[in-house]
Nucleic acid binder design. Structure first.
Lengths: 120, 120
DNA sequence: CTGCATGTTGAAGTGCACTTCAAGTCAAGC
DNA sequence: GCTTGACTTGAAGTGCACTTCAACATGCAG
């Protein structure tokens, strides 16, 4: 019914080690098992992993992701709180982009200086 | 002539520990000392720290910064190589900004979904 | 001249996010 | 039935970027 941890690893881009680690710390809740006790990842699992990965790559700390995951498990009653978490995170991402853009211009300036040096 | 490590810390935004650490690993080269052997930071030191900080906040690994610092110490002959390093780093920063912007839209989408849930 | 804050050093410790290890289980191919 | 390879677990290890510690030195206030 589901796919193996190996396939889930390929699809998600996370190592099998990381998949087990994420489950252990509660980021992924109780992945289904096959007859032999092996993990079997379903579509919803993969979608969730995808979203988790986006939170990670945008710099959300694991601890905060765990909190989000826990709220999610508690159901619809926690929707407003989860939204607030995402809004706060969104603001951080925006700020990070702004900071990077600003620093980028310093980089450009420095690179220009080097060009000028080389052509003088 | 220069300022104390405490003042340099305040100006640069780096802890005194980090300032000593940066010096130890060769990121900052031989900061001057006062009569009592205490560090004395001058304007060029602070400018360099400022630039280092920009490299760090844009995600350049310490090891790479050390390499850049070493090239810088070797003088003008290494200018072209330093420029290349900055250009490569610049490309990474651009890519990071693009990635963050993309992930941001997923975040926006999710937040919208939560709003829709709350208003239904 | 005596505290005491601030400085110095090398070495050890910390926190985060994994990653590797050790020891065992299970299923498919020969 | 036996090997092989992927899977399982808990525990220990890794890499990065600092941070803290321990032990000692210096300089200024009272």
């Amino acid at each position: 019914m589901g796919i193996t941890i190996q396939e889930a690893s390929r699809v998600s881009g996370l190592s099998t080690h990381t998949l087990r680690y994420y489950e252990r710390i509660g980021l992924i809740h109780e992945v289904g098992r096959d007859s032999g006790g092996r993990r079997s990842y379903t579509r919803p699992d993969l979608d969730w992993l995808d979203f988790l990965t986006k939170l990670r790559t945008t710099g959300m700390p694991i601890a905060e992701m765990c909190r989000y995951a826990e709220l999610r498990r508690r159901g619809p009653a926690t929707a407003a709180e989860r939204r607030r978490m995402l809004e706060i995170h969104r603001a951080r991402v925006l700020e990070r982009i702004a900071q990077l853009s600003e620093d980028l211009s310093i980089l450009d300036y420095k690179i220009d200086l080097y060009h000028a040096m080389e052509n003088s």
